[in-house]
Amino acid sequence: MKLGLVIDLDTCVGCHACATACKQWNTSGTIGPLSDQNPYGKNPNGSWLNRIRTYEVKESLADQKPPSANQQSSCGSDKFDLYALATKGESALSFVGVNSATGAPASKTVHMPMSCMQCEDADCVTVCPTGASYKRAEDGIVLIDQDKCMGCNLCSWACPYGARELDETQGVMKKCTLCVDRIYDEKLPESERQPACVLSCPTSSRVFGDFDDPTSDVSRLTIERGGKGLMPELGYKPTNRYLPPREKAEVPAMVKTNQPALSKLKKWANRVIAR
């Protein structure tokens, strides 16, 4: 089994529901508590296993080439490219929606939730000296044994996705467990054996499942929508997939009658319409 998440960038509105759902489930969960420092003071912060960031994506200024073309294709389709998408349609503008007021270059706001990618080649695991970090053979979930971690931070250095955060109170590393304590809990109703973030997402932008099963939702969505892993060039083989924004929905315009505005009022014949 290769369990992981699919995240739909076409529908994520950046509401942070998945982030707080994650926090509340996991603070009493296997990886918890998730401590918070200075919760009511200056600069509050704490450990989170899932964070949402927002980016503005703008038409290519051709200054950023992908790290390597072949590496790109090895990890999903190039549908993800704003540029590729844009040139397929009329123009880049058609994809992102031009700022009609300012005529500024086409750009788009993208919300990007990030939690552990459950990488297949997870260096966070190999660098861990204590063996606290490990990847479960049976389902690929990467976990941390809280009793064994010495808080050296090395695994967080090895993680390119910022998925690991040290818990400052307990001095041990925390990360997304893929809600291992929900998905296998047979005392929960079957429909609830899903990660907390997935259950909670109001736009259903998060889907959980087995990527090894070609019939699963996650596999199907990845193929249909060109789901892609992030930073493939680093070779971690992240399991989670991001679905690119869809192409803009097009609607034809009704054909104009081409009559001058006011003059036609006179010509309006009333249709006889029964009340």
Partner: peptide, 8 residues
Amino acid sequence: SAREISYT
């Protein structure tokens, strides 16, 4: 107000 929270 707490300086630190570890809710569980």
